[in-house]
Nucleic acid binder design. Sequence first.
DNA 1: CTTGCCTGTTTCGCTATCGAAACAGGGCGG
DNA 2: CCGCCCTGTTTCGATAGCGAAACAGGCAAG
Lengths: 115, 115
Amino acid sequence: MSQNDLLTPWREVMVEMVRGDQPDLSMRQWALLLTVYLTPGPHTVRRLSEDLEVPKPAISRALDALSIHGLVKRERHDADRRVVLVRKTADGSEFLDRFAEAVDASERSADLGYY
Amino acid sequence: MSQNDLLTPWREVMVEMVRGDQPDLSMRQWALLLTVYLTPGPHTVRRLSEDLEVPKPAISRALDALSIHGLVKRERHDADRRVVLVRKTADGSEFLDRFAEAVDASERSADLGYY
DNA sequence: CTTGCCTGTTTCGCTATCGAAACAGGGCGG
DNA sequence: CCGCCCTGTTTCGATAGCGAAACAGGCAAG
């Protein structure tokens, strides 16, 4: 598979992201969102900060942005109330579903070159 | 293929982008860079603006940012000197090579689940 | 040459994000 | 209760991005 074929779906999906329709998230916000939805929890600010190698305040700010769009929610941990658990939301799942569809469509159309 | 398997490579690559090593580009800058390298030229500011559905000044600014990192260069068109042609650079090609390797590695490791 | 349109760029005020440091407050050992 | 360390958040000044509008300059018709 050529570099072009490999990267073309990325281009198409990123161009779609840029075309203003969806809420436009920064790269950190995307990385954070995908990490929350695709890796096993529980997700705390500290853990996300370490996993993404990004300072804690940046995580906190990114969570603000994602929360505003309803893509994620914060919840206090009962046992240790210092801890904030980052949870998925229905809106966020739906948002990622649409994103996955866009990725799928791009990769399928790139694969057409094989036949 | 589940949504997870589809999106996991995206997560991994985006997390790598975020981990501060490489120049950190915004989504628009990525979309612009990939468009210049993966779609047939010649690329002018006007055309890029229309293709990405982003206002011209935003393209101009993004080109500034990419130029600073040496990922792209501007060149006046000889026949019509109003026009700016956006060109690939060696550094940019190398940068995208590394990016393609990261994508490839992520997708391969995700595919291991099939065997 | 002048007018009008086209190119891409710059300016404007504003919002978002940045890293570093200070902060508020819960947990826990003494 | 008192410190101390841990949690996540907020503040700070600085930087980067935004859209809209103004701008500089090339081109071409008259």
